[in-house]
């Protein structure tokens, strides 16, 4: 009797925690569709998906990092650096444009991971340092932002960011494939189980034979690489390595991951939740833009309120 009550309560909690963001998303979309005639137009939806895909790629890496109980503050800067490197590299051809940012940003992530795993420094501090490092490097390369590298409009690399299938941009497909892969890795591989165990109870994980250091190094390397990829895709889309983007983007990434139901303390989370979180934030931004008369800074206000509601709900529901 008591058993059943607790089980039902637990099931309800689980649904709310997992699907809270999904329910909010469905409501938002339904209301927006009815209120704003332009919202449901194919053009708007395609644009929405494209805008979301860059953030989704970054948030995917962040999801893994946060489930291990860590945080990666460097992704905003690394994203911008990735874009600049891609733009600079595009003069040497497609491969350089794509691989240079992946390698450099992956290396930054690797250093993050090594420092966090091998010394017991806090992820917050380590990645804060690399946030500054990456932004500084970017400013050096671009002569303090005076130099903006352009990408030739007819190059294959631009096609990567601007090409479409049925009107949907390539980045959408890239993000979708990566997220599906990420979900499979997280839930259906030993590595994924290690990620959960690391964040769920680090000391126990050690005793259960989980390779903590290896797991952490991999998630931070992946996070850096994915941020670099998102930067490269953005550069391809914008046809230039814009130096001022990505400031504070790490906070957006953390926000969407948490809104998607991943515990900020680690040990629990889903890729699907993160994707829903991205969609939710992008829909909110889109709607606020549609209203037109509203200051675009309200985007942050609304996102902030959403984040707060989710975190409060997580706390309440965990009891």
């Amino acid at each position: 009797m008591t058993m059943t009550t607790t089980r039902t309560a637990a099931a309800r909690t689980k649904v709310l925690q997992r699907q809270g963001a999904a329910v909010a998303l469905v409501l938002m979309v339904a209301v927006s569709w009815l209120v704003f005639p332009r919202f449901g137009s194919p053009d708007n939806l395609r644009d929405l998906a494209l805008q979301g895909s860059f953030l989704a790629v970054i948030a995917l890496g962040m999801t893994f990092v946060i489930i291990t109980g860590g945080i990666d503050l460097s992704v905003g800067s690394v994203y911008a650096l990735g874009g600049v490197l891609a733009a600079w590299g595009s003069q040497h051809g497609f491969l350089v444009a794509l691989l240079l940012p992946l390698v450099v940003c992956g290396l930054i992530g690797l250093v993050n991971g090594l420092l966090i795993a091998r010394t017991s420094m806090a992820p917050f501090i380590v990645t804060l340092a690399s946030l500054l490092f990456a932004r500084g490097l970017l400013l050096v390369i671009t002569d303090e932002g005076a130099n903006t590298y352009q990408i030739a409009a007819d190059s294959a690399f631009v096609e990567l960011g601007r090409g479409t299938v049925f009107g949907f941009g390539y980045p959408i497909f890239i993000a979708a494939v990566l997220c599906v892969l990420g979900g499979v890795v997280l839930n259906r591989t030993s590595f994924g189980q290690n990620v959960f165990a690391t964040g769920g109870a680090e000391q126990s994980a050690v005793l259960m034979g989980v390779p903590l250091a290896k797991t952490k190094i991999i998630v931070y390397t992946a996070s850096g690489t994915l941020a670099g990829l998102a930067g490269a895709l953005t550069a391809a889309y914008l046809q230039s390595g814009v130096t001022v983007i990505g400031v504070g983007l790490e906070l957006d990434a953390i926000a969407v991951v948490v809104i998607g139901g991943t515990l900020l303390t680690g040990g629990m989370g889903t890729v699907l939740g993160t994707v829903i979180g991205v969609a939710l934030i992008k829909v909110i931004q889109n709607v606020i833009n549609q209203i037109g008369t509203l200051d675009s800074n309200y985007q942050s206000v609304v996102s902030g309120v959403f984040l707060l509601v989710v975190v409060v709900l997580q706390r309440v529901l965990r009891r």
């Binding site: 189980q193 959960f196 165990a197 769920g200 109870a201 000391q203 126990s204 994980a205 005793l207 259960m208 515990l263 040990g267 629990m268």
Partner: peptide, 12 residues
Amino acid sequence: VNLVPLMSVSAN
């Protein structure tokens, strides 16, 4: 008990 409380019984 040195297991991971947030993971499922079978995963542990």
